[in-house]
Simulated scan of single mutants.
Amino acid sequence: MEAKAMAKQVRVSPTKARQVLALIQGKKVDEALISLRFTPNKAATVIEKVLKSAAANAEHNFGMDLDRLFVKLAYSDQGPSMKRFRPVSMGRAHPYRHRTSHITVVVAER
């Protein structure tokens, strides 16, 4: 049995989120929360919330034991990009993208 939680359109690029998600893959939930709490990254705070939500879903919806939970899967997909323009010299404009991501965390019982 496994429980899942998602955060959609998070204002963090998927590659930066994947770096943090690699830290928690396969760990117990309490160890993963500790490592996320001390990771100095914007994505770490969002991933911590998603992990807490997945653990709460496992306990409430499926009656799983919190002490036996581990992170089975954690991944980040690309969401929609916001296209913006930055003014540069001589009246021109350069385009750039604000990337977003969909973060998914799946927990299961050992």
Score class of each variant (00 low, 15 high):
7 A>R: 14
53 S>D: 13
88 V>H: 13
45 T>R: 12
50 V>G: 05
79 G>A: 15
54 A>H: 07
60 H>E: 08
32 A>G: 11
70 F>G: 08
69 L>V: 06
56 A>H: 00
25 Q>S: 12
87 P>V: 15
12 V>G: 05
109 E>W: 00
81 S>P: 02
87 P>N: 15
62 F>P: 00
54 A>R: 09
93 A>P: 03
70 F>Q: 11
106 V>F: 01
101 S>A: 12
3 A>W: 06
87 P>R: 15
80 P>V: 12
65 D>V: 04
88 V>G: 06
30 D>S: 15
38 F>N: 09
57 N>D: 06
83 K>L: 11
6 M>P: 01
81 S>E: 12
7 A>M: 14
51 L>Q: 04
50 V>S: 04
58 A>K: 05
94 H>L: 14
76 S>F: 01
80 P>H: 10
23 L>N: 07
29 V>L: 10
107 V>L: 05
13 S>R: 02
1 M>V: 08
87 P>Y: 15
93 A>N: 09
16 K>R: 11
48 E>H: 11
80 P>T: 12
85 F>N: 13
26 G>L: 04
25 Q>H: 13
37 R>Y: 09
61 N>G: 02
110 R>V: 10
12 V>K: 06
43 A>E: 02
42 K>F: 00
25 Q>N: 12
56 A>T: 05
25 Q>P: 00
62 F>V: 01
32 A>V: 11
32 A>R: 07
18 R>C: 03
82 M>C: 00
26 G>E: 08
46 V>W: 09
94 H>I: 14
92 R>M: 14
10 V>F: 02
5 A>V: 11
7 A>I: 12
102 H>S: 03
21 L>D: 05
71 V>M: 08
18 R>E: 11
98 H>N: 06
70 F>I: 09
33 L>S: 09
98 H>S: 05
101 S>G: 03
37 R>W: 04
102 H>N: 14
51 L>S: 04
18 R>T: 05
23 L>W: 03
50 V>E: 05
77 D>R: 02
81 S>K: 13
49 K>H: 12
87 P>S: 15
32 A>H: 10
103 I>G: 08
62 F>S: 05
93 A>V: 15
76 S>R: 03
57 N>T: 07
38 F>W: 10
8 K>I: 12
1 M>Y: 02
14 P>E: 02
32 A>W: 11
32 A>I: 11
87 P>H: 14
110 R>G: 13
72 K>A: 12
86 R>Y: 10
81 S>W: 06
105 V>F: 04
96 Y>K: 00
42 K>A: 11
16 K>Y: 01
63 G>Y: 06
31 E>T: 11
106 V>K: 04
17 A>L: 07
60 H>S: 07
91 G>M: 09
22 A>D: 15
48 E>A: 14
61 N>M: 11
72 K>C: 03
34 I>Y: 10
85 F>Y: 15
103 I>K: 10
